[in-house]
């Protein structure tokens, strides 16, 4: 199958994200990239665990003084739900239902923005409590790990939005279907990383 072909609901393949050689390459290449990203975040997690609560003096807040579970729970729910809505979007993509796909991608972006807003609010709150990027090794490690994730969320939002704007008028074809699919893979990956951050940083932070 060719990327330029005009397709209809009837001729749309079952796996449009892998229908052409370019798409197959993109699909595999992105999975491999996510493998590398896993190692990247593992290194950041290891650094965080080594430097957790490592502060220069007792005036600095520790993990158990800082984190508030209700706030992060809401953020977690927003991000997990956005992962689900991106699954809906890909379901409609596979059914050649462009408008429905765009709708669910839109919901995904809104949920992602909500998460990002909460993260900015949360960081702002910590800074006012004296937990800064430059105030201790703990602060540096915390903001690096969670901030790297936040930067990934921001990039993912920009990516999905760019795809939506670019393809708004022309609908689905075999050239852009793998692009949407790969962006949603990225979004899932961000979600999985957050599950680990929620566990390792926040839940383990609460128990001391």
């Amino acid at each position: 199958m060719q990327a330029e072909e005009k397709l209809t609901y009837e001729t749309w393949p079952a796996a449009p994200e892998r229908a052409t050689l370019e798409a197959k390459n993109k699909f595999l290449g992105f999975w491999l990239f996510l493998g590398g990203e896993t190692v990247l975040f593992s290194s950041l997690f290891a650094t965080y665990l080594a430097l957790k609560d490592k502060v220069p003096d007792t005036s600095q807040p520790l993990a158990k003084d800082l984190f508030e579970l209700p706030l992060t729970l809401v953020a977690t729910m927003l991000l997990l739900t956005s992962s689900l809505t991106s699954v809906y979007a890909m379901y409609h993509m596979k059914n050649f239902a462009f408008k429905k796909m765009m709708l669910w991608l839109g919901v995904t972006v809104l949920l992602g923005l909500g998460f990002l807003g909460l993260e900015v609010y949360e960081f702002n709150m910590y800074v006012h409590e004296g937990h800064k990027f430059t105030s201790s090794a703990f602060g540096s490690a915390f903001y690096s790990l969670v901030g790297f994730h936040g930067a990934h969320v921001t990039f993912g939002l920009g990516w999905i939005l760019a795809l939506m704007i670019r393809n708004y008028k022309r609908g689905l074809n075999l050239y852009n279907a793998p692009k949407f699919y790969v962006a949603s893979l990225y979004w899932h990956f961000i979600d999985v990383v957050w599950v680990f951050i929620f566990t390792v940083v926040y839940l383990m932070g609460m128990v001391g």
Partner: peptide, 13 residues
């Protein structure tokens, strides 16, 4: 950027 990952006096390692 003023971080303290490796600075022992700031809790780094």
């Amino acid at each position: 950027f003023g971080a303290n990952f490796f600075d022992v006096t700031m809790g780094g390692n």
